[in-house]
C-alpha cells in the first residue's frame, strides 16, 4: 500500500513538472509584460490542482487500459489472420473516433460560418449545417481511410517515407487547383482530428501489429498511423471544397 502511494506521489510530481512551463509563461506575461495582477487566484489554484490530478490519472489509466487493449486487439487480429476484418476495424476506429471529435465539430461549424460569409453557400442555418456535416463526414472518412492505408503498410512492410512524401506532393498539387478559401481550413483539419484517446489507442495498435507480424520492426513499422491520419484529411477537404464550388 505504502509502495503504491509512493508511486502515485511520484506520478503527481511528474505531472507538476509537466505543468510548470505553462504556469511560468502565464505568470511572466501577466506580471512582467501586461503588468496586471492575477485575477481570481483561488479559482486558478483549484484549476491547476485539477489539471495535475487529471494528468496523473490519465497517464496511470493509459498504461493500465488503453495501451494493453490496443496491443491485445492487434495481436488477436494478427493471430486470426483475417486482413479484411482487421481493415474493417481500422476503418471503423478512424471514422468512429473522428466523426464525434469535439474539436472537429468546432472547426467545421466555424468553417461553415466562413463559407456563408464568403458567399460560397447560401447564408441560411440549414445550408450551414449541411456544409458543416459534409465537412465532418469528409474528414472522418479521410481518417478511416488513413488508418486502413497505415495498417496495410504495416502488414506489407512498405516504407513510410514514399507514401507520406507522395501524399505531400498530392497536397501541393491540390493546393494549386483547390479554391483558395478552403486551403486554410484544409491544412488545419489535418491537425485537429487526432484526439487524446485516439492517439494512444492507435499507437498501441500500430506497435502491437508490428510486433505480432514476423519481420516487422515495431519502431520502424509500428509508428506512422497518426501521420497518415493527419495527411489524408487535407487532401479530402480540398476535394470537398472543389466539389462544393
Amino acid at each position: 500500500m505504502n509502495h503504491q502511494l509512493l508511486v502515485f506521489l511520484k506520478a503527481l510530481l511528474g505531472s507538476c513538472k509537466d505543468l510548470l512551463p505553462i504556469i511560468l509563461v502565464i505568470a511572466f506575461f501577466q506580471f512582467a509584460v501586461l503588468q496586471q495582477p492575477m485575477p481570481n487566484i483561488g479559482d486558478i489554484l483549484i484549476g491547476l490542482m485539477l489539471v495535475v490530478l487529471g494528468l496523473t490519472f490519465f497517464i496511470y489509466g493509459l498504461e493500465m487500459g488503453l495501451f494493453p487493449i490496443g496491443e491485445s486487439m492487434a495481436q488477436a487480429f494478427a493471430k486470426k489472420g483475417s486482413i479484411s476484418w482487421l481493415l474493417t476495424f481500422a476503418f471503423c476506429l478512424g471514422f468512429g473516433t473522428t466523426v464525434a471529435e469535439p474539436s472537429l465539430i468546432a472547426v467545421a461549424d466555424e468553417a461553415a460560418i466562413v463559407a456563408a460569409a464568403g458567399g460560397i453557400i447560401t447564408d441560411t442555418l440549414e445550408s450551414q449545417h449541411s456544409y458543416a456535416d459534409g465537412l465532418r463526414f469528409t474528414v472522418a472518412f479521410a481518417v478511416g481511410l488513413a488508418i486502413v492505408i497505415g495498417v496495410l503498410r504495416i502488414i506489407r512492410g512498405w516504407p513510410i517515407q514514399y507514401l507520406i512524401l507522395g501524399g505531400y506532393v498530392v497536397v501541393v498539387l491540390m493546393t494549386i487547383i483547390a479554391p483558395s478559401w478552403i486551403i486554410g481550413i484544409a491544412y488545419d483539419s489535418g491537425g485537429v482530428t487526432t484526439s487524446t484517446i485516439t492517439v494512444p489507442l492507435v499507437t498501441a495498435l500500430g506497435v502491437g501489429l508490428a510486433s505480432a507480424i514476423k519481420g516487422r520492426n515495431p519502431m520502424i513499422d509500428g509508428f506512422g498511423l497518426i501521420a497518415f491520419a493527419s495527411l489524408t484529411p487535407m487532401i479530402f477537404v480540398m476535394i470537398y471544397g472543389m466539389v462544393i464550388s
Partner: peptide, 19 residues
C-alpha cells in the same frame, strides 16, 4: 484503466477551463 483515463481527462479539462 479506462475509468482512470476518463476521470483523468475530465479533471484535466475542467481544470483547464477553470485556470
Amino acid at each position: 484503466g479506462f475509468i482512470y483515463v476518463l476521470i483523468g481527462l475530465a479533471l484535466f479539462l475542467l481544470g483547464l477551463e477553470k485556470a
